[in-house]
Design a protein around this nucleic acid. Structure first.
Length: 240
DNA sequence: AATTTCGGCAACCGCCGAAGG
DNA sequence: TCCTTCGGCGGTTGCCGAAAT
């Protein structure tokens, strides 16, 4: 038996949001805060799916959104983060204040992708296109092991980002909480308690990428950046 | 001026994991 | 332990305006 739909589709609006709908949603979130998206449409008098409301708020109505063109710095940062994280748009967005995962995803697909291709760089592997066939992906989803038929030469190693400073901040969780704005600032953060209780056996890579089946202990053998997840709150990663 | 093509972006869809009963 | 619900994520679609013909 499949999952029941999140809302009664026959009685919900679809497509572009009207000004009135936006105003209702903003007023409701201001009054009651984020969350309980399922019950929000009814409470706010909106004929929309809860998921649709959430998306509209996060991607368009949130007051802390930056909007406008991406700066050159943001551009560079997105490329670097993508080379490290792959299509983990929410994680990338978490490093770019005021930007949403959807916005970054769109920007990547429409601008950066093309720019990289124009420079002869494979946007997936971040390697020159001529080497694309033999290259291993930079994404950490399929980590580590160099191809057995190929010697682990400098060529086969993931590219480095020498100017990307992953400045790791190790701090107690409450300090981070105080700095964080009340609204969603970071997608699905791994709570410090989780890391301390169950995540202690997880490497930083498995933790940040939420590797399936690695809830308590990973077996990838990776010690990404030489760190175990229990040692730090990765939300404190700062890019310079 | 009319039509076609293209690019950008907002929104939707389907899946997944966490939480709770 | 299983099932259901909900929030969240990434991929994809479709609309709309701009550019090209």
């Amino acid at each position: 038996m499949g999952r029941s739909p999140c809302c009664e589709k026959a009685h919900t609006n679809k497509g572009a949001w009207t000004r009135e709908e936006d105003e209702r949603l903003v007023a409701h979130v201001r009054a009651h805060g984020e969350g309980c998206w399922r019950s929000l449409p009814g409470a706010a008098g909106l004929l929309r799916c809860g998921k649709s409301c959430r998306l509209r708020w996060i991607n368009y109505l949130r007051p802390d959104l930056k909007r406008g063109n991406f700066t050159r710095d943001e551009d560079d940062l997105i490329v670097k983060l993508h080379s490290l994280l792959g299509n983990k748009w929410s994680l990338i967005a978490a490093r770019l204040p005021g930007r949403t995962d959807n916005e970054i995803k769109n920007y990547w697909n429409t601008h950066i992708r093309r720019k990289l291709l124009g420079r002869g760089i494979d946007p997936v592997t971040h390697r020159p296109l001529t080497h694309a066939a033999s290259a291993t992906t930079v994404s950490f989803l399929h980590p580590a092991e160099p191809p057995k038929t190929q010697p682990a030469t400098e060529e086969s190693k993931p590219p480095r980002c020498p100017d990307l400073n992953l400045d790791l901040c190790i701090s107690l969780p409450f300090q981070q909480e105080e700095e964080r704005p009340p609204a969603r600032a970071c997608a699905k953060p791994v709570k410090m308690e989780q890391l301390q209780q169950g995540g202690g056996g997880l490497c930083f890579r498995c933790s940040i990428l939420r590797v399936r089946g690695a809830a308590t202990e990973c077996s990838c053998g990776s010690n990404f950046l030489g760190l175990r997840a229990g040692m730090l709150d990765f939300r404190g990663l700062r890019m310079k």
